[in-house]
Design a protein around this nucleic acid. Structure first.
Length: 287
DNA sequence: CTAGGTGCCTGATTGC
DNA sequence: TGCAATCAGGCACCTA
C-alpha cells in the first residue's frame, strides 16, 4: 500500500514527466466507485471543469497526499503561486499511470487526464479507497496532516517532544497522520524493528536515547525504501508512474515475515493484532 | 485525551 | 470443481 516512500517516488516521476504540461481534458469514468473517490465534489463537472486547460506547474507531497499545482494561462497574469491544487490520495490500491492514449483502459480506471502528445495520466484504483479533489493551493483539507519526517520539518527534538506528550502505543503514534506524516503499517513495523522497540510500548516510557533511536530509524527506513522505489508486497499493489514495481519488499525485516526467522537473532517473527491491524515484530530484538 | 469498534472495497486465498 | 467465507489495509466517523 502506498505510504510516504511510494508517494515520494511517484512525486519525483511526475515532476519529471508531467510538470509543464497542460491538461487538455479531464474525464471521470462514471461508476459508483469513481463517484465515491471524487465524493468531495457533488458532480463530475466540478472536477472536470476546473482541470480542463490547466497547466501543471509543480507536484508537492504532504504525508501520503500528492498535490498538483495548477495554473491557468489566462487568469491572474503576474500573480505568484498556483491558482488551484489537485489533491490525490491513493488509499490502499490507487495507481497513477502515464499511459499512451491508444492503450486500452485497465479495469478500475476512474479518471483520465489527457496531457496531449498522445499520452494520458490515469487514476486506477481497484479497492477505491482513494480520494481525489480540487481545492485552493493551500489545501485546508490537509491541515490535520503532521510534520514530514524527511524534509526537515520533523526534527529529532520536535519528535521527542511530541512522543513524550502522548500516552499511547508507539504503533498507534507512528500511524497517526497528525503526529508524523506518511507512515503506515509497513514502515511503522520496519522503523520499530530498526529502533529495537516493541510496537506496544507506551510513548511516554521511552528514554531520550530510545526516542532519538526511533527518530533515526524512521528516517533511515523511509530513505532506504525510496532508494528501492517503494514496497510492492504480495497484497500491496503499488506501481510507479510506468506501472513498475518497487524493490523494497526484498529488504523488509518484519512486515509479513511472521513465522520466519529474525535476520538479526534468529527468533521467529511474531504477528499481533491490535484494533483491526497487525503489527509484525521480533520478540527478542524489540523491547 | 485515548481506546476501540465499524464500514467502505476487490482480489487472492482458504475452506468445505 | 465451485462457490462462499475470510482477509488485507487507510481513513472517517462513532461511542465509551
Amino acid at each position: 500500500m502506498p505510504e510516504l516512500p511510494e508517494v515520494e517516488v511517484l512525486r519525483r516521476d511526475l515532476e519529471r514527466e508531467v510538470v509543464g504540461r497542460t491538461i487538455a481534458g479531464a474525464k471521470v469514468q462514471v461508476t459508483p466507485n469513481s463517484l465515491r473517490i471524487i465524493r468531495r465534489h457533488a458532480a463530475c463537472g466540478e472536477l472536470e471543469g476546473p482541470l480542463t486547460g490547466a497547466r501543471i506547474t509543480g507536484i508537492r507531497r504532504r504525508g501520503k497526499y500528492l498535490l498538483f499545482d495548477l495554473d491557468f494561462p489566462g487568469s491572474g497574469v503576474g500573480e505568484p503561486g498556483p491558482d488551484l491544487a489537485l489533491i490525490v490520495h491513493l488509499g490502499m490500491s490507487g495507481q497513477l499511470l502515464h499511459e499512451a492514449t491508444l492503450a486500452p483502459l485497465r479495469p478500475h480506471t476512474h479518471l483520465v487526464f489527457d496531457l496531449g502528445g498522445g499520452s494520458q495520466l490515469r487514476y486506477v484504483d481497484p479497492r477505491a479507497f482513494g480520494v481525489l479533489f480540487v481545492t485552493t493551493p493551500d489545501a485546508p483539507e490537509l491541515a490535520h496532516i503532521g510534520l514530514d519526517p524527511l524534509n526537515g520539518e520533523l526534527t529529532a527534538k520536535r519528535f521527542s517532544a511530541r512522543l513524550a506528550g502522548h500516552k499511547m502505543k508507539l504503533k498507534a503514534f507512528l500511524m497517526d497522520q497528525r503526529f508524523v506524516a506518511g507512515i503506515g503499517n509497513i514502515y511503522s513495523d520496519e522503523a520499530l524493528f530498526r529502533a529495537r522497540l516493541h510496537p506496544f510500548r507506551m510513548c511516554d516510557t521511552l528514554s531520550p536515547a530510545e526516542a532519538r533511536r526511533l527518530y533515526r530509524a524512521i528516517r533511515e527506513v523511509l530513505t532506504a525504501a525510496i532508494v528501492h522505489r517503494g514496497t510492492s508486497a504480495e497484497d500491496a499493489q503499488y506501481r510507479d508512474l510506468h506501472g513498475a514495481t518497487g524493490q523494497h519488499s526484498y529488504f523488509l525485516e518484519v512486515y509479513q515475515r511472521q513465522g520466519q526467522a529474525c535476520r538479526h537473532c534468529g527468533r521467529t517473527i511474531q504477528r499481533a493484532r491490535w484494533t483491526n491491524r497487525h503489527s509484525h515484530f521480533c520478540p527478542r530484538c524489540q523491547v
